[in-house]
Design a binder for these strands. Structure first.
Lengths: 161, 161
DNA sequence: GTAACTCATTACCTGAGCTAAAGAAAAGCC
DNA sequence: GGCTTTTCTTTAGCTCAGGTAATGAGTTAC
């Protein structure tokens, strides 16, 4: 079945700038919200390493992208409070996935960098996600999958903004 | 910037059925996963009523769609264990958003139906989401928004499957 | 050189999910 | 018809990831 065609194409949205969302947008946002909440709950069960929380995974992903960062930077990027990030980083360090070093310029701060173990752990994670993807792919047709792929970067942007 | 065009269009995915995801799929799934997790964290702060958790909201949404249901059905639909749903339903009842009645055919079960208050609460929620949408719309161009709208039903299907 | 600010941390709390076990009702089986 | 087994909900107790408030160390500004 076709989804977007259930509603008029690229309709009268945002005619005067932000703030005048119409009913169609609301429906989409509604669907998005529900789906994201439920999906996130499912994803919680998709851990590679049982002892690695989704946010810990996310932090490793961020580190893989950005190289190294201070706890404060990570907290801001993950939209988490500093104390939470302290504990997350401590966990990761205890598991040998991350290394904490004194900051070169500022002795209050620390720099967090991922270890080689984190590298291979992320690879293992990719494997596990692969299995999830296979299961997922079986339930989507090509069109659906294409939509998902097209939207993924937008979701990322949204989540990051 | 264009997103999907960073990668070959509608590429060599799923040539032999499920299970052979390629690197492009993995990148998309990776992005999807991270984005969903982060977005869900943001969404937690978007509550209408401070004392209403995302899952409680989701249950009300389900009830609005399906009419009434038993706790067990709700638990299955929300992918939550029965004891959790018991507490959620109890919360909702305490807040007057839901009514519990004996099941007509089976005295073990109960039927959960939403009240008029829930109706107006959901309306208020829609208002709040409207504000969020406006903020959101300001950061996306039309193409990005269109991708999101197209993908929303697929995400829903995924979360529901 | 001291006051104010910032980063990380510690201590404690909350909230939302889980499992295990119990209680009530229904269904199946002599 | 009475017994066992199964199913639905609930209770009790636990865990874990997050948050706030307060502390300590280091830096910046005056």
């Amino acid at each position: 079945m076709s989804y977007a065609n259930d509603m008029p194409e690229t309709s009268e949205r945002r005619t005067g700038g932000a703030g005048d969302g119409n009913e169609l947008d609301m429906a989409a946002v509604n669907a998005l919200r529900t789906a994201v909440m439920r999906l996130s709950r499912r994803l919680k069960h998709q851990r590679v390493d049982e002892s690695l929380s989704p946010t810990e995974m996310s932090v490793l992903g961020t580190l893989a992208r950005c190289g190294s960062a201070t706890p404060g930077e990570l907290a801001r990027k993950e939209h988490v409070q500093p104390p939470s990030m302290t504990r997350i980083v401590a966990m990761l360090e205890a598991k040998g996935l991350v290394r904490l070093e004194p900051h070169p310029d500022d002795r209050r701060q620390k720099t967090v960098t991922q270890t080689e173990r984190a590298e291979s752990m992320l690879a293992a994670s990719r494997e596990k996600r692969n299995a999830w993807l296979a299961e997922l792919a079986g339930r989507l047709d090509d069109d659906e999958w294409e939509r998902l792929r097209a939207a993924a970067p937008v979701l990322e942007k949204l989540a990051h903004s």
